[in-house]
Nucleic acid binder design. Structure first.
Lengths: 144, 144
DNA sequence: GCTTGACCTCAAGTTGACTTGAACTGGCAT
DNA sequence: ATGCCAGTTCAAGTCAACTTGAGGTCAAGC
């Protein structure tokens, strides 16, 4: 059994965030000692899952749904596959972008605007961005 | 010469955003006809550059600095290289993550928590996340 | 028994990138 | 000359994921 400070220390997640996660239903304290929350050790596994979900690009509420306490905390395979596919697309985009940036960084053309490969990159960028916008881009979730 | 609606249509960027960009110093109208802004055609190139910068993960103020109207609108090569390196790292992370997700999606172990490769992925995730947090994670910029 | 200080609650603030709404203007077609 | 309506301004709202601050509680050490 751990108090919030110990969980914070072991997980690297601030106590304020842990309280926030509890409020959002992402985690639960095993109980209270007076006012103070006490946590079981397996909270750390759950926090790992949450971090993993975040890195994978799920929102906290998606994660909360996946990790509901009521049902089995089983993760839906279809959703994971879907997210893997999205990641794959994103990786391809980022790879193209990285190559483009490197090219521009080393390109000695008088102006990038005249460099054909830069122009191509730019066109792609704009197209992608416009599309993303049309498909209702989630605010607060940036490109990188 | 185009009015704001035409720029919006051609660029895919809403008029409200264009006004916002102007307020932030990212773009300038060539002039006004009455109250109405009029834009030169090369605004579209500039908007492409802005979109490109956003996709690369620069903030609007970083982009504004890179595209200042006063100096030559030349982009600093060092910054681009830096960003390309960051992208490279990010790509490697996402690739690992994608593979992990795919594995879990297809893994038939009774619980992912017992799957060694999943546990390894989780450990990595938590470590990365904790580190990101320590190095003062920028709010509003998510992982994906 | 009293202080200390880690924990608590709840409301409000932060960040970046926009969007929305109300109230206003003015060029162009009738 | 008049009225439409796309354009304007400016303040305020939105979103996600937290953080911060003020004021309160209580277990443990002296």
């Amino acid at each position: 059994m751990m108090d919030i400070a110990e969980v914070a220390r072991k997980s690297g997640i601030p106590a304020s965030t842990l309280r926030y996660y509890e409020e959002k239903g992402l985690i639960q304290a095993a109980g209270r000692r007076g006012l103070r929350r006490i946590f079981e050790p397996d909270i750390l596994t759950r926090l790992s899952l949450i971090s993993l979900g975040q890195i994978a690009g799920f929102t906290l509420s998606e994660i909360a749904e996946m990790l509901r306490y009521e049902d089995k905390p089983r993760i839906e395979h279809r959703k994971l596959s879907e997210k893997a596919d999205q990641l794959d697309l994103r990786i391809k985009e980022l790879t193209a972008l990285r190559d483009g940036l490197r090219h521009v960084a080393n390109c000695t053309a008088p102006s990038h605007l005249e460099c054909p490969s830069f122009r191509r990159l730019m066109r792609t960028a704009l197209a992608r961005y416009a599309k993303r916008r049309r498909t209702s881009r989630v605010p607060g979730r940036s490109a990188i």
